[in-house]
Amino acid sequence: MSIGVLVGIFLSVALVNNLVLAGFLGICPFLGVSRKVDMAFGMGCAVTFVITISGVVTWLIVHAILTPIGNAIGNPGALYFLKYVAFIMVIASMVQLVEMYLKKFFPPLYTAFGVFLPLITTNCAILGACLYIDMKPETQNLLNAAVYAFGGGLGFMLAITIMAGIREHVRFSDVPKCLQGAGITLLVAGILALAFTGFTGIGK
């Protein structure tokens, strides 16, 4: 397992297949919490944090609980129908745990992005990243899975921060009335996604 593979996975998920702009995950916070750069950055940090932990924990759920039990009864996939329920429960409880932990041990960090934590449970970037880790052939070992999750989180942070930067400027421009709010945001996102397609091909 070379470092090159890890770099490849990281670049692929952070830029080329950016969870938000190419994978359409986490669109709700991407549109909702991108009015100010500092808010967007805080949200990005919170997501990166939770996504990395959840990615690792759900990997462990599949490879250390569901598969061994399945193997024990003779069919490795026997319990896979519990995956989705297990994943969402893990994410929800991870979010709660992280929130309580930060509040107790890192109060400054908690005040910085603690407010975003409850919103994250229904952020599809988290569940999406966990599902992709489960599906993709290259993330079947723990280290790759962790790198994938971390890269996915950073990609989300990058996308939402850029978006917020642009929106801070859009506020001063003369947007047609019917496009104000969601309309113009989506169009900006489209152009941003167009820019990100320029990253395709750097995976090699």
């Binding site: 994978g23 113009i184 169009l187 152009i191 996604a193 397609t197």
Partner: peptide, 11 residues
């Protein structure tokens, strides 16, 4: 492609 989705929905 992804950009088309954002642009169409925006419009």
């Amino acid at each position: 492609l992804p950009p088309g989705a954002f642009l169409t929905l925006g419009v």
